[in-house]
Amino acid sequence: MMSEIPEGLFYTHEHEYLKSTGEDGVYQVGVTDYAQGELGDVVYVELPDSGSTFDRMEAFGTIEAVKAVSDLYCPAEGKVLDVNQALADDPELVNSDPYGAGWMIKLKVLDSAHLKDLMDAAGYATLVGGK
């Protein structure tokens, strides 16, 4: 099955995405459609408090699916402005709408140079294409 990989987003090798909120330097972070498909039904999402800061590739939370538990990695150094409280009651939003209602944190990216190291949709498609 082909997974959805929207244009205009940044992607990591660990299957997180960054999607611009429209506000300068602020991105919505979640996991990709491919990742949710691989994980299967998500049972819990553990998220940080608003105001926390994370280094690039530091774990900011965990995602518990039926098959496995995975760390969530911060794609770029930044500060958490908001977390998706809806996931506490409806973790399956990660499965049903990974790029929309299943978002995890809103991140103020402190070093935009980090974004250059991330993949675009075409690059990410190549990464997961063979799988």
Binding site: M1, G40, D41, V66, K67, E92, N95
Partner: peptide, 9 residues
């Protein structure tokens, strides 16, 4: 098959 498209739950 570990699951079908509708999922384990």
């Amino acid at each position: 098959p570990v699951q079908y498209p509708t999922g384990i739950t």
